[in-house]
Write a protein that binds this DNA or RNA. Sequence first.
DNA 1: CATGAATGAGGATTCATTCAT
DNA 2: GATGAATGAATCCTCATTCAT
Lengths: 205, 205, 205, 205
Amino acid sequence: MSLVFLFLCDRMNVRLNSLAEKKAAIFESTLQLIKEYGFHGTPISQIAQEAGVATGTIYHYFTSKEELIIELFGYCRTQITQAIFKSEELSLPYAERFVSIWINFVTYYIRHPEMLSFMEQFSSSPYVKAVFCENRIFFQDEVSNFLSKGVTSGHIKSLDINIISAVFLGTVAATAKKHINGHFTFKEEDMKKTVAIIWDGIKIY
Amino acid sequence: MSLVFLFLCDRMNVRLNSLAEKKAAIFESTLQLIKEYGFHGTPISQIAQEAGVATGTIYHYFTSKEELIIELFGYCRTQITQAIFKSEELSLPYAERFVSIWINFVTYYIRHPEMLSFMEQFSSSPYVKAVFCENRIFFQDEVSNFLSKGVTSGHIKSLDINIISAVFLGTVAATAKKHINGHFTFKEEDMKKTVAIIWDGIKIY
Amino acid sequence: MSLVFLFLCDRMNVRLNSLAEKKAAIFESTLQLIKEYGFHGTPISQIAQEAGVATGTIYHYFTSKEELIIELFGYCRTQITQAIFKSEELSLPYAERFVSIWINFVTYYIRHPEMLSFMEQFSSSPYVKAVFCENRIFFQDEVSNFLSKGVTSGHIKSLDINIISAVFLGTVAATAKKHINGHFTFKEEDMKKTVAIIWDGIKIY
Amino acid sequence: MSLVFLFLCDRMNVRLNSLAEKKAAIFESTLQLIKEYGFHGTPISQIAQEAGVATGTIYHYFTSKEELIIELFGYCRTQITQAIFKSEELSLPYAERFVSIWINFVTYYIRHPEMLSFMEQFSSSPYVKAVFCENRIFFQDEVSNFLSKGVTSGHIKSLDINIISAVFLGTVAATAKKHINGHFTFKEEDMKKTVAIIWDGIKIY
DNA sequence: CATGAATGAGGATTCATTCAT
DNA sequence: GATGAATGAATCCTCATTCAT
């Protein structure tokens, strides 16, 4: 490879990184602020300041605050999906993976309360409409697929996927919220007990 | 009793009624608007217009928008509690009441999507802090009491109340949301299947 | 008439006046500022300040800056029409009225340079489109009517009304501009000479 | 001549051309945008995009937006002057040239509505002040000279040049505007009738 | 009590201009 | 020279809140 080629590659990487990095910085600052001050109460100016960029810069990356919010949802979904579907757990038996994913999910939310806060606020805001066009079900792609496989593979009772997914995701969110709000500190053991409840109700003996 | 006294009583009743009625009108208009336009995007002026009162009138009933929101939360909790704990079901066996309350809850949310929308938005907004002082757990008073009784009476596994309540409330909200968002139409039968899952995981055989 | 009736009338008058007065104050402040700083370069905040009201107040009277501009055009047209069609000149012979109206027009613009400035800027801005729906020709209602009558009554050559009106209005604006810009001070006599030019070309001997 | 010299000449020509071409491209894109979106509503960024250059490039050619606008005015004046004073009409008798120039002017504006729009907006904007230092009268150099000559040569009544020029330029602009706005389609014949009006009022029999 | 005009601080967005590459 | 990302002051507009009637 010529030096020129390497040089260009390098420059492109730098650019790509800086773009991705700046977007990520904006996303993270938005998440923190939304968690603290709520969906409203987080002006663009503050997001910019916290992200270390100028107000106008935000508008190079997003055409409006709404677009920022909607793209942020995509960012969160990606982050969450990566965190809960660990490659090293792919080979686990279904029951164990079910438990693992549920616990990973709750653990991720507990470690990233700003994600939970945002996802909850987003899902009950009018913005959702904007995403429903492409994704009719929230975590359909990954979580629902995983649960569907459980049904077809005979590990899970033959219930509608929406029922199962409501139970799965509903308990994840409620558990994480209880923990974050300080009502109860869920330790590994407590989480296991909690998933056990729903796994017992869903599994095929 | 003199006529004057009756007249005064009458006027007072009228006033009390009209006060309660006006507050309710404000609450309902707020709920509808928040459902449609989100927590932000619902100015006081619009709430007033929709409720058929002047902007300034709102400030006779609530000192600020925040107070309106917080009182609205109380209003919702009362409405919901009344709707799910039906007096005619008081005598049912615990298992049946458990199922009934869960279904009543989901059904109420489905019939009043503006309530669900508000409760969800409220619970992930910074306003919650204001209510947590008095009520450390959301439906502690009623729902948690009911679930606690299940533990002490030996119908429910001896798990921490927070675990049980997370599962109960989490599935209620998730189920109602799935229905309202149009992902799945939960009929009576589907709801029964859904509660069955968590009841199976919680009950003592 | 009862006192109550008079009282109500009085209050209504006061209100109507204050509304009309406030609108007029906003209009006048807008005209002055647009004359001085141009169509852009006149922020709403400055208009408000100059008119002695708060920024937000402007938005009680006009839904947007654009609406303010468009209503301002209507205001100017009314003012101008009142100024150039003097009732005491109604009985003059056509030729003399023609001259009079032209001179009144130029004189009005010279005395109200902010009106000329606004009308010129407005007529070459994209806002015009908004008014053309209702008024296909600018001063059609009054000026064009007057000129049309000249044709039908046999005082003016049988030319298309658009030709005559272009000549009439074009010279009015150009003359006033020359005066205001300080290129030439048009005295009564000079104006008479100028109208004479176009009257000679238009009249029927 | 050495090759090096030719080479340099060539490069300089290329540069001059490309400079002139790029400036012209910027001018034309500015004119189009101003016509469509008004004096405000045409950001530098859009001008750049339409002209096929980068935003920053504009600032190689003009130190500021204001300078661009003012230079654009000069560009327009040159273009217009070239278009209305046709060399092949130099030998026509005065009366015919008068008519010709007037018609050329209107025709040019009709073919280049963006020029009329710009000239009108410019002449009623605060920018004019910047040009008035050097040119106290708008088309003094050319049009006024031509009209002055008419007076001295005895073809035109002995009126102040400002009066004559107001009538001449005022009717040109008004006529072109009426045509462009779609109020009336001025054909060659109609234009002739229109100039005739003012020529009749100005000429010496 | 009720009204709704008035307020003005605050927030979203734009855009002329700069500057590192 | 050319580029276009970055800047942040400036602008339009909103909306919670007040207060005279």
